[in-house]
Amino acid sequence: MTASDLFVSVDDAKWVNPEPGVSRRIMTYLPEMMMVEVAFEKNAVGAEHSHPHIQASYVAEGSFEVTIDGRTETLRQGASFIVPSNLVHGVKALEKGRLIDSFTPHRAEFLK
């Protein structure tokens, strides 16, 4: 890894659209960890799913209905949540908003 790999310009991060009303871009990653910004339009849904990665998320903007392992909470800007490996989880944006997701290890499928 070179020093230039340690910093990612906002101009270098490319947006993809994994679900209707949802855009995501990889902010930075190493094999052990990944940080991703996810933008949601109002009422957009991040469908329930599970993965072996540990996920920690920060509500950077807006408010979300977050469901983890059958438990649902409403979280607003400044709140956070963590998802242990393999628990089913998903979100619904109650208003336009953004999440900052961190994964360990990195999500290799996001790199394709």
Rank of each mutant, 00 (worst) to 15 (best):
D69H: 12
H49M: 03
M34N: 05
E73W: 09
A39R: 13
G90N: 09
I68A: 07
T28R: 02
Y29M: 08
K112V: 10
A47W: 05
G46L: 14
M1P: 13
V59E: 07
M35H: 10
P31D: 14
S63N: 06
R107N: 10
V8T: 15
S85N: 06
A44T: 00
S85K: 07
G78A: 05
V88G: 06
T72Q: 10
G21P: 01
A56G: 07
L30F: 01
H106R: 14
M33K: 06
S80N: 14
S57T: 15
D12M: 13
A56T: 14
H106F: 08
P105E: 03
A13L: 02
S9T: 13
F103R: 06
M33H: 06
R71T: 12
A3E: 15
R24H: 09
A108I: 12
S57N: 12
S85Y: 02
D11S: 15
G46V: 09
H51V: 01
H106S: 11
P52H: 11
I68M: 03
E95F: 05
F64T: 06
D69L: 06
M33D: 03
A3I: 15
M33N: 06
M1S: 15
V16F: 00
L94H: 01
L75N: 02
T104A: 15
F40N: 08
A3K: 11
R107T: 09
P31Y: 10
V45E: 14
E32S: 15
I26W: 06
P105S: 01
R107Q: 11
K14R: 13
Q77I: 07
L99N: 10
P18Y: 04
S4W: 00
S80E: 10
Y29R: 09
A44F: 04
I54R: 14
S102T: 15
F103D: 07
R76S: 15
S23G: 08
T67M: 09
K42I: 05
A60K: 09
R25F: 11
D69Y: 10
E95P: 01
P52C: 03
R24C: 11
G21W: 03
E65V: 05
V88N: 07
M35V: 15
V88M: 08
E48G: 07
L99V: 12
S23N: 11
R98C: 08
W15S: 08
S50D: 13
V8L: 03
F64D: 03
A13Y: 01
Y29V: 01
G78M: 04
L87M: 09
G70V: 04
G70C: 01
V38A: 12
Y58W: 12
Y29G: 04
T67N: 08
V59Y: 03
Q77A: 11
M33L: 14
D5L: 11
M27Y: 06
A79P: 00
K96N: 00
S57R: 10
P105G: 07
F7E: 00
E48I: 09
D11Q: 15
D69F: 09
K92G: 04
A3G: 03
P31N: 13
T74G: 00
H89M: 00
P105T: 02
A44Y: 03
E109R: 11
E65D: 06
S57E: 08
D12V: 04
H49N: 05
L30P: 01
I54T: 15
G46F: 12
E65I: 04
D101W: 07
L111N: 12
D5S: 14
Y58T: 08
T74W: 01
L111G: 10
Q77H: 06
D12W: 05
E41S: 13
M34W: 03
H51T: 05
R25D: 04
